[in-house]
Design a binder for these strands. Structure first.
Lengths: 129, 129
DNA sequence: CTGCATCCTGCTAGATACTG
DNA sequence: CAGTATCTAGCAGGATGCAG
């Protein structure tokens, strides 16, 4: 994620247009917080506050923004219970669940190779200092 | 990708530290241009100018930055031939090649489900206008 | 509890000009 | 050809305060 990802809209020009898939292969999931929210929701429905607590370091602004994004993309379901105080539950939609497997695979890659990446960085930094 | 991704360093605090893998599952590949460069290099060694031409819309600054990043992470090999004018070739390293499969899977997901995402967006925008 | 509105700052990425 | 250097606008994201 390299520091963070913009969550704003892509340019209008592409918003609703056809493929160009390579360009957007990651567009849906490639935010720092998106991955984490996804990981939390894999294990089932969660309330806003739960997510806020589980995801260390997320601000409420970013969490809300991320959830809205995912909801808009049809990956996450937002259910509001008109109680007092309000209760809001988030869960993966069926479409969202189709993303679990690809995410897991990427995750596995990280587990397997992240150390190599770190070492490559150290060497690079050493040689280019 | 949602508009773009920062290519700067993650915070120093994490730079060389241990796992926390979920947090960085996508950190290595989650830049708009990274995916595209990767896709270009899958088919073999390419020169800087080739990449520049193939990847529509990339500025030379971003291309260079992305390539440096990938090189630093040990995913891409940069080979300079001391000719005049200079020739620089880029290719995937063995480590880089291990990422091809995960990327392909994500790519497949996009092919299969991107239309659903677009439609979800349209509906969301319609209902929340 | 679950947000939205606002202000503010730093950083990103584009544009432009220059070089070995 | 393959970059580096500099300037700048715009936006992302944190902090704070308020609300249903």
């Amino acid at each position: 994620m390299r520091g963070g990802t913009k969550l704003n809209e892509e340019s209008e020009q592409w918003e609703y247009e056809s493929p160009c898939h390579y360009r957007r292969a990651l567009e849906v999931v490639s935010s720092k917080w998106t991955v984490l929210v996804f990981y939390e929701l894999e294990s089932g429905t969660k309330r806003y506050g739960d997510l806020k607590r589980s995801i260390e370091g997320v601000t409420q602004k970013m969490l809300t923004q991320t959830l809205r994004q995912l909801e808009r993309d049809g990956l996450v379901d937002r259910r509001v219970y008109p109680s007092v105080p309000p209760t809001v539950e988030y869960s993966l939609t069926p479409l969202g669940e189709t993303l679990i497997e690809p995410m897991r695979i990427l995750h596995k890659w990280t587990d397997a190779h992240y150390d190599s990446v770190l070492q490559a960085r150290r060497e690079y930094d050493r040689d280019h200092s």
